[in-house]
């Protein structure tokens, strides 16, 4: 090596004509792609989890001798999975050739549409999941010695098929409440899973709007 690194650096940049700044364009292309990819990856994991649960629950319930509850849970999960697949297909119709800003905006819009459609469907699903869970507990109750013990201890209570009436009323009320608050439960559920990505999406869109304004 003839020259010191200082000389190479100095002379190199002195004669350098290729210090041309790259064009600043499609600034958010990679960012928006990463964000949407992340969301889609999470969605895919969610669907795989649903499929595994739809298969696993009936098997597990079968071992516990609660076949019908298992089948009902599986059907509900499969319906949710089917709905999720439809949602994913509709997301594919987004224009990938649009600018990053338009793409993210339309992605955000489609997410909000999907969420509001999901709210309508989950309005029925959550109470049904709850009722299935209750039904499982009742089945276990009836099979065990607890029911007879309850009869002995509280003979004055009104029972319907071995279940105290007040318990049925509480469960009924809880189901109604669940139906009423299902949209909030759904939003909480979604937030728990995708909250950070949603925030990031919102933040990126806001930043891009800011960037446009200059």
């Amino acid at each position: 090596m003839k020259n010191s690194i200082e000389v190479i650096w100095k002379e190199g940049f002195l004669n350098e004509r290729s210090l041309v700044a790259p064009k600043i364009n499609d600034l958010y292309n990679q960012k928006s792609k990463d964000l949407v990819d992340k969301m889609e990856r999470m969605y895919r994991i969610n669907m795989i989890a649903l499929a595994i649960m739809a298969i696993g629950f009936p098997i597990m319930y079968c071992f516990l001798d609660f076949i019908w509850e298992g089948v009902a849970t599986s059907i509900l999960l499969l319906l949710t999975l089917g709905y999720s697949i439809r949602q994913k297909r509709s997301a594919k119709t987004l224009d990938h050739g649009a600018t990053s800003f338009d793409y993210l905006k339309s992605f955000d819009r489609s997410l909000h549409d999907a969420l509001s459609r999901g709210e309508k469907i989950l309005r029925f699903s959550y109470p049904l999941y709850f009722l299935i869970a209750m039904s499982t507990i009742w089945s276990a109750w009836n099979k065990g010695i607890l029911a007879s013990k309850m009869h002995q201890k509280f003979p004055d209570l009104v029972y319907i098929r071995n279940v105290p009436l007040f318990v049925l009323i509480i469960v009924g009320l809880a189901t109604v409440l669940m139906f009423y608050f299902s949209d909030r439960i759904y939003r909480w559920d979604v937030r728990l899973m995708y909250g950070r990505v949603f925030d990031k999406l919102k933040e990126t869109i806001a930043e891009m709007e800011n960037l446009k304004r200059g």
Partner: peptide, 11 residues
């Protein structure tokens, strides 16, 4: 070879 100067590239 980002730069025209070969020594600079090597550096």
């Amino acid at each position: 070879r980002a730069f025209e100067d070969e020594s600079l590239n090597q550096l």
